[in-house]
Computed example of a mutant assay.
Amino acid sequence: MNSLQQSRNQVIQQIEDACKHARRNVESVQLLAVSKTHPSESLREMYQTGQRAFGENYLQEALDKMESLGDLDIEWHFIGHVQRNKTKHLAEKFAWVHGVDRLIIAERLSNQREANQAPLNICLQVNIDAQDSKDGCQPNEVAELVKRISQLPHLKLRGLMVIPAPNNPQAFSDAKALFENVKTEHAHPEDWDTLSMGMSGDMNEAIAAGSTMVRVGTALFGARDYSKQA
Rank of each mutant, 00 (worst) to 15 (best):
M1P: 09
Q6L: 12
V11C: 08
I12V: 14
I12C: 10
Q13L: 10
Q14G: 14
I15A: 04
D17K: 13
A18R: 11
H21P: 00
R23D: 15
N25P: 09
V26P: 13
S28D: 13
L32Y: 04
A33Q: 04
A33W: 02
V34R: 00
K36M: 07
T37R: 06
T37D: 01
H38S: 01
L43Y: 05
L43H: 05
T49N: 04
Q51H: 01
G55C: 10
E56V: 03
L59I: 14
E61D: 06
E61V: 03
K65Q: 04
K65W: 02
M66P: 04
M66K: 14
M66C: 09
E67Q: 12
D71T: 10
G80Q: 09
H81I: 04
R84T: 15
N85Y: 09
K88P: 00
L90R: 07
L90I: 05
E92K: 13
K93D: 02
K93R: 13
A95L: 00
A95Y: 01
V97Y: 07
V97G: 03
H98D: 13
G99R: 05
V100C: 05
A106T: 01
L109N: 10
Q112E: 15
Q112K: 15
R113A: 04
E114G: 09
N116P: 00
N116M: 05
N121V: 01
N121G: 08
C123A: 13
Q125C: 07
I128T: 03
D129I: 08
D129P: 15
S133E: 14
C137G: 06
Q138P: 01
P139T: 02
N140L: 04
V142T: 06
A143L: 11
A143V: 03
V146Q: 03
P153H: 03
K156A: 15
K156V: 03
V162A: 09
V162R: 08
P164R: 06
A165H: 07
A165D: 12
P166V: 08
N168I: 03
N168M: 02
N168P: 07
N168Q: 10
P169W: 07
Q170T: 12
A171N: 14
F172Y: 13
F172L: 07
A175Y: 01
A177L: 07
N181C: 00
V182R: 13
E185M: 15
A187M: 01
H188Y: 11
P189H: 10
P189M: 10
E190K: 15
D191L: 05
D193K: 11
D193Q: 14
S196G: 12
S196M: 06
G198D: 02
M199H: 08
M199Q: 04
M199V: 06
G201L: 05
D202R: 11
D202K: 10
E205P: 00
E205Y: 00
A206I: 02
A208M: 13
A209Q: 02
T212Y: 04
T212Q: 11
M213P: 09
R215I: 06
R215Y: 13
V216Q: 10
G217W: 02
T218N: 09
A219G: 15
L220S: 06
F221C: 03
F221W: 08
A223G: 00
A223D: 14
R224S: 03
D225W: 07
Y226Q: 09
Y226R: 12
K228T: 14
K228S: 12
Q229D: 02
Q229C: 06
A230G: 14
